[in-house]
Simulated scan of single mutants.
Amino acid sequence: MNKSILLTEILKQLDAIKLSAEKAANQAHETATHSETVARSKYETFGLEASYLAHGQAQRVAQCSMDLKAFTELNLCAFNDETPIGLGALVVIMDEKDDEQSLFIGPGAGGVKFSMKVDNQALAEDVEVMVITPSSPLGNALMGRMLDDTVVINIGDNRKEYEIIAVY
């Protein structure tokens, strides 16, 4: 598994997310500062609401920048059968229904999904990968575990059990 290709794909996705966030922040700022948003009475709150939105969008851009920086500085190392799962691991898990998931444990940007080609024994197939963080329930459960371990997470009343079937 060439994880530099994986990291390049994550950075490409994060760049696209940041670009979208910047556009939304600029649009929200323009709306908040437009002359027509000035309140004419104490009951007109459109300008105030627009400024809150602009502030939130600016925070989103800042978070995207931090995620990009964290992934750019991420030191990728190879994981094997005897290496505990940690930051930078690509983990493949299988649930009770034999459904597989490919998860990359990253320093941020949890929930980002993308597809990439993976060479697997002379077959090239598209695999959907999702970024998770160690602070997520599943990420936390995977940290420090090894190949063939079983992890259990409880989310509300739902109990999910996963077997770790590959670690890269």
Rank of each mutant, 00 (worst) to 15 (best):
T31K: 11
L142R: 05
G110E: 05
G108K: 01
T83L: 07
Q59P: 06
S51Y: 09
A70R: 04
A109R: 06
I10K: 02
S102V: 00
L87H: 06
V152N: 14
T33Y: 11
S4R: 15
G88A: 11
S115H: 12
Q63C: 13
A109M: 07
Y43C: 14
I17P: 00
M94S: 02
N120H: 12
Q63L: 14
E44Q: 14
N26M: 04
N158H: 15
K97W: 10
A70P: 04
T33K: 13
D98K: 13
S102F: 04
V127L: 06
I132H: 04
V112H: 00
S35Y: 13
A28C: 06
I155G: 09
G110F: 00
L48H: 15
Y168S: 11
T72A: 02
A28K: 03
K113R: 14
K3Y: 08
Y168P: 03
D126Q: 07
E73K: 13
L48N: 15
A39K: 10
V92C: 10
A28D: 01
M66C: 15
A122M: 09
L68K: 05
I5P: 01
N154M: 14
S102Y: 03
R60N: 12
L74V: 04
P107T: 02
A109H: 04
L138H: 06
A122W: 12
E163I: 07
E96L: 11
E125T: 13
Q101T: 02
D149S: 09
V61F: 06
V151G: 04
Y168T: 07
E96A: 12
Y43H: 15
I5K: 13
Q27G: 07
A50Y: 01
E125L: 15
F104S: 03
A24F: 08
Q27C: 08
G86R: 03
N120T: 05
I105F: 10
S4C: 11
V167L: 01
M143W: 12
S65K: 10
G88D: 02
D157R: 14
M130E: 01
E49Y: 13
G47P: 05
D99E: 12
A28W: 04
E30S: 13
L138R: 07
G47L: 07
D98T: 06
V152Y: 14
K18L: 01
S102I: 01
A58T: 01
K42S: 14
E128C: 08
K160T: 04
T37I: 10
G111P: 04
Q101S: 08
Q101H: 12
V131D: 03
D99V: 07
I153Y: 08
M1T: 09
K12D: 00
E73Q: 12
T31P: 00
E73A: 09
I85R: 09
A39E: 03
T83M: 09
G108P: 03
H29Q: 13
G139Y: 00
S4L: 11
D148M: 12
D95L: 07
E128V: 06
